[in-house]
Amino acid sequence: MSFQLFIFYVFAIIMVFAAARVITVRNPVYAAMFLVLTFFTAAAIWMLLEAEFLAVTLVLVYVGAVMVLFLFVVMMLDINVEPLREGFVKYLPVGILVGSIMFLEMVFLLTQRYFPSENFPAPAAKPANYSNTEELGRLLYSDYLFHFEVAALILMVAIVAAIALTMRRRSDTKYQRPGLQVQVKKEDRLRVVSMDTESKS
């Protein structure tokens, strides 16, 4: 077993363990943390596959941005997880049965006999000066331009939908009008009241 294979198994085991913990821990904050660990080990495995740019992006975008947002939501909203767990024990036997049947079927099908690894040779290692980022960029803006544009369109639909679904005009909302605010004069706000002086007695 080469050292690289050893590293792969270490990361793979950590990843499967972390992914399993995401759905089994009781505390949602811990679940989010385990999800961070899952993403991080996935990034490490991508690094082994020489997909450096994707690995770094996964850490930056998912671990750095998306999961922080996730944690915010989990902490801000007081989610009661008890109703979500209702019926867990009731459906567990059926779930285990169906899951294990599917698992066994997959194992049976995807073994060496029907799915030999000789059919899928490992790609040759790239030279040291090969830039993964540059190649991705070149492909993205040439062969995959159409997909790039459609993906951009999907993001726009997401923005339109998010704004349309959450923006509502409420009658009790207070607005500031900066235009009127700066036109305020001393007379509008300040009233000088003349009073007789009072003597200390």
């Binding site: 997909h147 459609v150 993906a151 369109l153 999907i154 939908a161 679904l165």
Partner: peptide, 21 residues
């Protein structure tokens, strides 16, 4: 395959939002 998937998601996302509007 990628075009099929992206077209499908464009349609599906619009539909989810239209139902929720």
């Amino acid at each position: 395959l990628l075009t099929i998937y992206l077209g499908l998601e464009l349609l599906a996302l619009s539909l989810y939002a239209m139902v929720a509007l």
